[in-house]
Amino acid sequence: MELTNASRSHRTADAASLASIGVLDERSFIRRLSVLDWLFAVALATGAGFALARYHAFMNYYDTLVLIGTVPALVTLGWRWKPSRLLMAGIAGLAVLSINIYQGDLSRADSNFFLRYFLSSQSAILWMSALFVFGTVFYWIGTLSRSPSGGSIGSKLTWFAVLMGFTGLMVRWYESYLIGADVGHIPISNLYEVFVLFSLITALLYLFYEQHYATRALGAFVMLVISAAVGFLMWYSIARDAQQIQPLVPALQSWWMKIHVPANFIGYGSFALSAMVGVAYLVKERGVLADRLPALEVLDDVMYKSIAVGFAFFTVATILGALWAAQAWGGYWSWDPKETWSLIVWLNYAAWLHMRLMKGLRGGVAAWWALTGLVVTTFAFLGVNMFLSGLHSYGKL
């Protein structure tokens, strides 16, 4: 086991790496912002203001706070990760175009060419699914053939998949209100919707690391878990007609859902990404594709940062979930199966990070642990719905 006294020298580097996830010197950063950066912020704030003015009748006080709080978060993301700006603009543009084509009539989804084949929620999510699968294929072509163009095509397909997926979710949100004001809700309430969300968040996290580390070699591995999620999504849609928009159950009719679920799935996506990077680590460690994958130190760093980010968001989501439970069911914790397994997931990654920071956990042991964590997380995410019953459920299988 790679837990030696010499590894203690890495603690300071780990602490600095973890701190780098947070806020840097904002004063120097603000001074570096260009006119284009500020125009982006103004455009985003203007769009939020337009949404608030147009749809305030459907929003309560808490919804308004969530919308307002989202603006600085997205502005910061756009400032620190420039490619996300074009993505945000594309999602907004396609969503607004779809809304204008609908003209308040849901039946146009079957009669209008662009809605039927591209911009309705179901069509956009189908495009997302196909593009993710093709992206996975091209990433593998690029890795196996040492072809930069293969990885480049895979990356572009993944970006377009994320664009179509988020457009599909935004349009689905609008479609739910076209069905009825009492039906309308943010599309993160059942198993179908959260599988879409999981795929998108995992892909976005990967694309960030792809640019940050200037390598597309990990795409072949990370995209496998996304393609698996897409495969489940397609089966679930066909077998259970799960793509249909359903009214919210009473317990989910809460503004807490808008912040608890996204935070939870940023955690899930980060944990899934770390596991697939762990697979890449184990493959390279055994000499397979060794000359095509990043250095073991890079793989180890990506795995660590992914778990650190995921753990932070999962911790926040767990706290928010407890507050939501107190409002919905009268108690912060009831040892419901979903709550119990969420605690197991949290303890698993808390132990991983503790061993990393205190004992210098690295190498194959860390990679195997991250991969085992994906099994635990998958059961908490999906297995609870399959084998256990309780208050929490995103949908029955």
Rank of each mutant, 00 (worst) to 15 (best):
M1Y: 07
M1T: 06
E2L: 10
L3Q: 01
N5H: 12
S7P: 00
S7G: 06
R8A: 12
H10L: 14
A16K: 13
S28P: 00
F29T: 10
L33F: 07
V35Y: 12
W38V: 13
A43I: 11
T46E: 08
A53C: 02
H56L: 13
T64C: 02
V66G: 05
L67I: 05
I68S: 07
T70A: 15
V71T: 08
L74P: 01
L74H: 03
L74D: 03
G78Y: 06
R80L: 06
W81F: 15
S84T: 13
R85K: 02
L86F: 10
L86Q: 05
M88N: 00
G90S: 01
A92V: 12
A95D: 02
Q103R: 14
D110V: 02
N112K: 01
S120K: 04
A124E: 01
T136S: 11
V137K: 02
W140R: 08
W140Q: 09
G142Q: 03
G142W: 01
G150L: 02
G151H: 03
G154S: 08
S155V: 07
S155I: 05
T158V: 11
V162L: 13
M164N: 10
G168A: 14
S176W: 07
Y177I: 11
V183K: 05
G184C: 06
N190K: 03
N190H: 04
Y192C: 05
E193G: 10
F195R: 14
S199A: 15
L200H: 07
L200M: 08
L200Q: 11
T202E: 13
Y206G: 10
L207T: 09
H212R: 15
F221W: 09
V222F: 05
M223Q: 09
M223D: 09
I226M: 01
I226G: 01
A228E: 11
G231Q: 06
F232D: 03
L233M: 11
I238G: 04
A239Q: 09
D241S: 14
Q244D: 13
A251R: 10
Q253A: 14
P262R: 08
F265Q: 07
F265E: 04
Y268G: 05
S270A: 15
F271R: 04
S274A: 15
M276N: 07
M276F: 15
Y281I: 06
A290L: 06
A290P: 05
R292D: 06
P294M: 08
A295M: 11
A295L: 12
V302E: 03
V302K: 06
M303P: 00
S306M: 14
S306D: 08
S306E: 04
G310M: 00
A312S: 13
F313T: 08
F313A: 11
T315I: 04
T315A: 11
W324H: 09
W324P: 00
A328T: 14
G331T: 15
S334P: 05
W335D: 12
W335G: 08
D336W: 10
T340I: 13
L343A: 09
W346A: 05
N348D: 11
N348E: 13
A351Y: 08
M355K: 06
L357K: 02
G360A: 06
G363W: 03
A366S: 13
W369F: 14
L374K: 02
V375K: 01
V376G: 00
L382M: 14
M386Q: 04
S393Y: 07
